[in-house]
Simulated assay, not measured.
Amino acid sequence: MTSRFRPRVMAAILCALTLAGVTALAGCGSSDASRGSKITLGFSAWPGWFPWQVAQEKGLFAKNGVDVELKYFESYTDSINALSSGAIDANSQTLNDTLSSVSGGAKLSVVLVNDNSTGNDKIIARDGITSVADLKGKKVAVEQGAVDHFLLLLALQEAHLTEKDIQLVPLVTDAAAAAFVAGQVDAVAVFAPFTSKALERPGSRPIATSAEFPGAIPDHLVTSAALTKDRPKDVQALVNTWFDTVKWIKENRAAAVEVMAKRGGVTTNDYNTYDAGTTIFTRQQNLDAFTPGVTPAHLDFQSNKIIDFLVGTGLAKARPSTDGLFEDKFVKAVPQ
Score class of each variant (00 low, 15 high):
2 T>W: 11
2 T>N: 08
3 S>I: 10
6 R>D: 07
7 P>D: 03
12 A>L: 02
13 I>L: 10
14 L>H: 07
15 C>W: 03
15 C>T: 15
16 A>N: 05
17 L>S: 13
19 L>P: 05
23 T>Y: 08
24 A>H: 12
28 C>A: 06
36 G>H: 11
41 L>H: 02
44 S>K: 01
45 A>P: 00
50 F>M: 13
50 F>G: 15
51 P>E: 08
52 W>G: 12
55 A>W: 00
61 F>Q: 06
63 K>H: 14
64 N>Q: 11
64 N>F: 08
67 D>I: 11
70 L>E: 07
71 K>T: 10
74 E>H: 07
77 T>P: 03
78 D>W: 14
78 D>R: 06
80 I>H: 08
90 A>P: 08
96 N>G: 13
105 G>R: 03
106 A>D: 08
106 A>H: 04
108 L>Q: 07
112 L>T: 04
115 D>I: 14
120 N>H: 08
125 A>S: 05
126 R>L: 05
130 T>K: 13
131 S>A: 15
131 S>R: 12
132 V>T: 13
133 A>T: 10
138 K>S: 13
138 K>T: 15
141 A>I: 11
142 V>M: 14
144 Q>A: 12
145 G>A: 09
156 L>M: 14
158 E>A: 10
159 A>M: 10
160 H>K: 15
166 I>H: 01
169 V>W: 05
170 P>I: 11
172 V>A: 09
174 D>V: 14
175 A>H: 04
178 A>P: 12
179 A>V: 06
182 A>E: 15
186 D>R: 02
187 A>S: 02
189 A>Q: 01
193 P>R: 02
193 P>M: 13
198 A>E: 04
201 R>Q: 05
201 R>N: 01
203 G>C: 03
205 R>D: 14
208 A>T: 01
208 A>W: 08
214 P>T: 01
214 P>G: 03
215 G>W: 02
218 P>R: 00
218 P>L: 02
220 H>M: 05
222 V>D: 03
223 T>N: 12
224 S>T: 03
229 K>L: 06
230 D>L: 03
230 D>N: 10
236 Q>R: 02
240 N>V: 01
240 N>F: 01
240 N>W: 00
241 T>D: 02
249 I>S: 12
253 R>C: 05
254 A>F: 07
255 A>G: 12
258 E>Q: 15
260 M>I: 11
261 A>Q: 05
264 G>Q: 05
268 T>V: 04
269 N>C: 00
269 N>S: 01
271 Y>E: 04
276 A>D: 15
277 G>W: 06
281 F>H: 14
286 N>E: 06
291 T>N: 09
292 P>T: 13
295 T>A: 04
297 A>R: 09
299 L>N: 02
301 F>N: 09
306 I>E: 06
306 I>V: 06
309 F>P: 00
312 G>H: 07
315 L>N: 04
316 A>K: 00
319 R>N: 01
321 S>H: 13
324 G>P: 14
325 L>K: 01
326 F>L: 10
326 F>V: 01
327 E>T: 13
332 K>N: 12
333 A>W: 11
333 A>H: 13
334 V>Q: 08
334 V>D: 09
